[in-house]
């Protein structure tokens, strides 16, 4: 019971035509719907709910909200009480407020990012179906990503002023939403500042992550691929299409994932992520990276941080 997984992210894009080309032709997401406001809904071939990406035309890049799916409708009532008890404002919005979804809880994370929890979303099914399915469908475009895997949000961090929204979010997500801390980066004097946190509800290394920064933002949303060779192939697709690559394929120390980072045509960062790294279980000890090894934590091969990777991001609200 409780939260299952990331359900969707609502991204703001500056040019819908360019965004659709990127997410449909290059990443290989499948069109699911378009509403009368011009929002476009897309899904990965391996996902069964109607959409995991909602694109909204805007004059500002970034994200409007992120939504996670809970196991049953009754979970929403229980989570609502827990959120209220914790002291955050929360509202139960009626079915359809979140497009193609049932009733949903709407609240702002301690970091200021808008989040929804819902239990029901229109069902479409995997592209390969459920009866004697093929391992993958024909006609996949571009990178052919499987599913939206996780997102990383930038949270305000200014320890001298007593502000650490990474720690605030981590506390809320673990104490109220039942997430488990899998890995963290500890920085500052005596490694007392939690500068990054990776949290899971599934058995993967992370379903959401928070990293400290000067202002709240969206660092990236990530799409799952099977393996390393798929990440390399995806990078070929990006190169062929002149997509701005931030980080070429390599390995993260944190999560052990094979990764590549790039930007959509509005400057929102995407990741292709392969391998499940390790099995994250409730009794797995928390992995801690210290400031001195921060380069290896993020980019294990070079052990060096790329300034654009740590400082370039779009709006988080």
């Amino acid at each position: 019971m409780g939260v299952m997984r990331i359900g969707h992210i609502n991204l703001r894009v500056l040019d819908m035509v360019a965004a659709r080309k990127h997410y449909e032709e290059i990443l290989g997401l499948m069109p699911a719907a378009e509403d009368d406001k011009g929002n476009v809904y897309l899904k990965g071939w391996d996902e069964w709910d109607k959409y995991s990406i909602m694109l909204s035309a805007s004059d500002r890049a970034g994200m409007n909200h992120v939504a996670y799916k809970v196991e049953s409708d009754g979970d929403l009532d229980e989570l609502k009480s827990r959120i209220i008890e914790y002291g955050l404002d929360v509202e139960m919005v009626p079915p359809g407020t979140l497009p193609f979804c049932g009733r949903a809880l709407r609240f702002w994370m301690p970091s200021g990012h808008l989040m929804y929890l819902y239990a029901e979303k229109e069902f479409v099914g995997k592209a390969v179906g459920v009866n004697n399915p093929d391992p993958w469908p024909d006609g996949l475009k571009g990178a052919g990503v499987h599913w939206l895997d996780h997102c990383l949000l930038i949270c305000e961090l200014d320890p001298p002023s007593g502000i650490n929204k990474v720690a605030d979010n981590t506390r809320f997500f673990t104490e109220v939403l039942g997430f488990r801390l899998t890995e963290q980066i500890m920085a500052g004097p005596d490694h007392t500042v939690q500068a990054a946190a990776f949290l899971a509800r599934t058995t993967t290394p992370h379903d959401i992550a928070f990293v400290g920064g000067p202002t709240l933002g969206l660092h990236h949303c990530s799409f799952f691929l099977d393996e390393w060779a798929d990440v390399l192939k995806a990078a070929d697709v990006l190169g062929k299409n002149k997509v701005k690559i931030d980080v070429t394929p390599q390995r993260h120390g944190i999560t052990r994932g094979a990764t590549s980072y790039f930007f959509d045509p509005s400057g929102n960062r995407n990741e292709t992520f392969a391998g499940l790294g390790y099995l994250s279980q409730p009794d797995m000890p928390v992995i801690t990276w210290t400031e001195e090894e921060i380069g290896s934590a993020i980019f294990f091969h070079t052990g060096e941080l790329n300034p654009a990777f740590t400082t370039v991001y779009t709006e988080g609200v």
């Binding site: 890049a61 970034g62 930007f263 509005s266």
Partner: peptide, 26 residues
């Protein structure tokens, strides 16, 4: 980001003519 979203490449054009694509109003 090379997509008009992050703002780090902001410049002020002192001389010359340019055309621009959509840039985040942020």
């Amino acid at each position: 980001c090379h997509g008009g979203g992050c703002g780090v490449c902001k410049v002020y054009i002192l001389q010359g003519e340019v055309t621009t694509l959509a840039m985040s109003r942020a």
